[in-house]
């Protein structure tokens, strides 16, 4: 009798424990998704009382929407550069920091710091530097190319954003690489060196395999962040010049609330999200592989 009472008490308490989190999550994370799917089949402008169902027309319209594809192509190109840049830089810096250097902890702390400030602050600081600092050097040295704000040219703006993103985005991957490097048994490296392996061979056959799981995590994290690019664009170009840096997230937001294509914008966001979800599934896969590896 007492035991039954005890079980009841436990079941009730457990249910009450999960209730707040589950309901918040359901209302603010799951419900909006279904709301979005529903609206994506309508022509609602976001304000009017009435709207009608138009089936898949929003989804079909996307295929011939040049502006949408322009953003897709910008995001894809940007993501490729971001992934390559972050991966190579973080491996390079990680290897450097893993050498026997004095003040290793100081360097690690300093290299990590850009990750702590907000992307927006980073973007805005560089906005000022691009606007005033680099033209200042250009004038001083008489180099015409540097005298203009690079954010005013279509290509320059894309690389201007990418640079800030790398400046901040390399920090966490570098520390990840560093901690992966520290899991390599020192005896292994020593015995390979004794056997006459040079540093290139060491990297290729010993260090690289150890880094592989970490590298795959870095690639996937940055694929995601490249596809979701928003803060840097807002801080540096707000999509310009001439929409050259209009990222998908920006486009979706602008179309939903400024251009009154609410249903259509949601349809776009669903398509983009399906791609990002596919990438995330890959991430969990590779993380699980990492566990097996350890």
């Amino acid at each position: 009798m007492k035991k039954i009472h005890k079980n009841q008490e436990r079941n009730l308490t457990h249910a009450l424990f999960v209730l707040p989190s589950v309901s918040l999550y359901t209302i603010f994370s799951i419900f909006p998704i279904f709301l979005g799917i529903y609206y994506s089949f309508t022509d609602w402008d976001g304000i009017k009382k009435n709207y009608s169902f138009i089936g898949f027309r929003n989804y079909i319209r996307m295929f011939s929407d040049k502006r949408f594809w322009h953003s897709v192509s910008f995001n894809l190109r940007y993501t490729i550069f971001l992934v390559l840049g972050v991966t190579l830089l973080s491996i390079g810096i990680g290897l450097l920091l893993n050498q026997k250097v004095r003040g290793k902890m100081f360097f690690r702390a300093a290299y990590f710091f850009p990750a702590v400030i907000s992307a927006l602050t980073g973007g805005l600081i560089f906005n000022q530097i691009y606007g005033k600092g680099i033209p200042f050097i250009g004038e001083l040295l008489g180099i015409g190319l540097l005298q203009k704000n690079i954010l005013t040219s279509k290509v320059g703006a894309q690389f201007g954003i990418l640079f800030v993103n790398l400046w901040q985005g390399v920090a966490i991957p570098t520390v990840l690489v560093l901690s992966a490097l520290q899991t390599i048994p020192q005896e292994l490296i020593e015995s390979a060196s004794l056997d006459g392996a040079d540093s290139r061979q060491l990297f290729r056959y010993l260090i690289f395999p150890f880094l592989l799981p970490t590298i795959s995590i870095i690639i996937i994290l940055n694929l995601k962040s490249g596809l979701m690019l928003y803060d840097y664009v807002m801080a540096l170009t707000t999509g310009g010049p001439a929409r050259a840096t209009e990222s998908l997230t920006m486009l979706i937001y602008a179309q939903a609330f400024d251009e009154m294509k609410f249903g259509y914008a949601i349809a776009e966001s669903i398509v983009v999200s399906v791609v990002i979800i596919a990438v995330s599934v890959l991430q969990i896969h590779s993380t699980n592989r990492k566990k097996v590896y350890e």
Binding site: F28, F31, P32, I33, L35, Y253, I276, I277, S280
Partner: peptide, 24 residues
């Protein structure tokens, strides 16, 4: 089931709910 239900959010990007959330 609750565990997997909550875990699903790791996969869901903010974009897909961003516009309905603002409306909500």
């Amino acid at each position: 089931m609750l565990y997997y239900y909550m875990l699903a959010s790791i996969f869901i990007p903010f974009q897909v709910k961003m516009i309905p959330i603002v409306k909500l």
